[in-house]
Write a protein that binds this DNA or RNA. Sequence first.
RNA 1: GCUCUCGUAGUUCAAUGGAUAGAAUGCAUCUUUGCGGAAGAUGUGAUCUAGGUUCGAUUCCUAGCGAGAGCACCA
Length: 566
Amino acid sequence: MIQEISQFIKQALKLDYLPNVEVPKEEGFGHYSTNLAIIEAKKLARPAPELAHELIAQLKEADKNGLFEKIETAGPGFINFTLASDFLSKKLSEALSTGDSFGKTKSQKGEKIIIEYTDPNPFKAFHIGHLMTNAIGEALARNLEWAGAKVKRANYQGDVGMHVAKSIYGMIQLNNETPDKNASLKEKVAFLGKAYALGAKEYELEETKKEIEELNKKIYQQSNPAINKLYKLGRKWSLDYFEQIYKKLGTKFDYYFFESNTAKFGEKLVREWLQKDVFNESNGAIVFDGEKYGLHTRVFINSQGLPTYEAKELGLAKLKYKKCKYSRSIVITGNEIKAYFQVLLKAMSFVFPKLAERTEHFPHGMLRLPEGKMSSRTGEVIEAETLLNEVKSAVEQRMQDAHFPPEEKKEISNAVSVSAVKYSILRAAAKNDIVFDLESSISLSGASGPYIQYSYARLAQVLKKGAFAKSANFVLLVNKEAKDLAAKLIQFPDIVDFSAKTLATNHIATYAYQLAKLTNRFYEEVPILKEEDKEIKAAKLALAKISATTLKNSLEILGIEAPGRI
RNA sequence: GCUCUCGUAGUUCAAUGGAUAGAAUGCAUCUUUGCGGAAGAUGUGAUCUAGGUUCGAUUCCUAGCGAGAGCACCA
């Protein structure tokens, strides 16, 4: 829609560029507006409001199809457009016939994007940080898909390194507590957690520290069969457990990469480019001297000759490219890795210049919990499952009185609790830290995922009772509530484009909430099924249908399910 | 110490350099059972400080104050 209006202005005024068009924040400034007159007035050194009047005359002249009901100027020289109801009605009809794919656009067409996110480490906990990365990554992936890009989801997991050595050390110590084959995944993972905690603690001690470091080498070289066996076992338990979580969260990865695969290749690359002076030797380690570029120096191969995360990441870039010839590669992590990624990209610009250009790091803030219960101040990490379960039990309590079959109830409480958590992550701009407030999530009121789901479910129930036609005359809808809703609905494709372009899915989240609010207002103020005039009723039902679809689609992009009733 | 990010109602979050800085929650008041009240309506209240650029600054620049993260063999 924005594109369309911008094109119209360009042609009408014979400009050589597309003017900026946006939706004004305030009501009363029309549906769309442009600051064109202010910009042009400056070039011509003329007063902007005066120029705006002249341009409006030309725009009205050019509007042969009657797209606009009003074109007027306000404030410092903005030109504001109000759509004609015929035109708006036509747009709604298009949306209605587009059906479930309303909102899909082509702005990212031709892009092949690989997105890496979640990245939990086998043998370690899947904590709320991973949950946050997953929610953001999944939403970005879906958003880009909706904007027409081809997207591949990648997960990169650290299955070698000191944390593994610590865990295996613990597994050996706790040998007699090892769960047997038939134990539940939960018990197995709990055992791994205990083993890691023990290993991490013992690592603090001088004598065991050396032992664990030796163990680490053996794991890397796969030299000891007994250790290999433990390694295989623990790794599998972890990965199976992660898979359960992905399923719950609605993520399906196309590729899994492991450090055990990137390590040797990365090491080789670094040694190769050491000869070409991209890397230096320093204190027995091989480093990249980032200081030359205003960054800091980082170790790529440590003094024991083992590749660090940095070297592995270098190998990973190439492996990703082998799997998927991407035009763009996005890596999503917490922002504590930001500085390190800059060094990595600089090093990569020598080793794989083309890939480095296509790679971007997307750092996000931390998911914090308010002081008090579930606080992480004690230093303990909070597992994703703990948080999800806590929210879920609150949701279940709320649903106590609902008369749904048990199976459906379970599905709904899952969908609602995931939505509560995901929405509170996605509503905020990703780069900032956010505070997840358990209490306000449990209360399930206000700008929340469950509120949007509820709004959808209400409409879905109405639509069940009244069949909507394939087309309708939306001009008949004269209530303010219906008109406001209609104007919001046709913005959806623009929002999809904008958030895909800026990689900011919080715009989708905000939009979904605003739309839900408008649908509720419409629902409250405008009786649908009771409407006696057949044609008006058909139009109302059709508007409800588009609203329901759009709510569902915006939730879909956020990775949130929309049950038909909740 | 250096680098990066951030600083907006009591609280949690918004605002591609735009118009009267939006929401939610909290508090106060109203709608009272209808197509699903997990709802809707009204009121209340904020851009850290000092400069600068601009027709216009929460946004860009400089300095200060405050918070968080990072700064060599962890990932």
